[in-house]
Amino acid sequence: MNAILFVEQTLNGLQFGVTLFLMAAGLTLVFGIMNMVNLAHGAMYMVGAYLAVAATQWTGSYLAGVLLALVGTLLVGVVTEVVALRTLYERDHLDQVLATFGLILFFNELVAIIWGRAALFSDLPQALSGHIELVTNLRYPVYRLMIIIVGLLVALLLWYVVTRTRLGMLIRAGASNRTMVSALGINIRLLYTIVFGFGAALAGLAGVMAGPIYAVQPGMGELILIQVFVVIVIGGIGSIRGALAGAIIVGMVDTMGRAFLKPALGALISPTAAEAAGPALASMLIYLLMAVVLALRPEGLFPARGH
């Protein structure tokens, strides 16, 4: 196996992993604290990507566009929570799945109305569009490297907020015993809205950063949403630690599977059979992984404490 290619794919896996983590962090908190299944989380990813493209064109500055998009997604998240989702926390999972499924249809069509159905492509600022030579013969896109760094920084920041601040303490307390937290005089509804809003903003950030790599189009949030579900189920629902571990595992397994499964199979079975089976198996790999993890450890790898 070519070492350079391997390092490059490892970086790609890491980049996909941190993108998944940004999505998973919000989703797993909403699960853990509000006990809520939110399929519409993928819509926030899409909204973030669209807002970034629109705001960048409007302001002419990439940085301003990104910041506006984050604030915008935060607002969209807060409004969605207050208008529609708040009443669903006490309902069973089935109602939550269906209502948020409806929201997906709604948001997909809404962006189609505003920006049209055709995919948008956004340009990167000069500084981020080149390649950088990490080691000899390994040139890696600056932009992807930046995603990895931003993702890891956000992970660090989240760890700090959740474990070292008062807000984080409330979040952890809310996850382990909601009733007790509100009995202690904490405005739990406000806490829910804050958590939901910031979760949406993190999903928006993932969408903003994914925009220049993938096409920005209606429905772009759905595929990644299902992959993020795999992440949090593998990691253990409600656990940030689990979300990070699950995201890196899924990112790596998916990327490595797509890159190396076909050649690896080709060495084992006939190349023509590998040609057919390789891509199929690669796209099924993370779902297989999830089935295995759930069969062996039904609570995920790092179950949240206090449940």
Binding site: A84, L88, R91, D95, L98, A99, F101, G102, L103, I104, L105, F106, F107, N108, E109, L110, I113
Partner: peptide
């Protein structure tokens, strides 16, 4: 689909 989505949310 916008209306179907809204309908779904309202029914639930």
């Amino acid at each position: 689909q916008l209306f179907i989505g809204l309908f779904l949310v309202l029914v639930v």
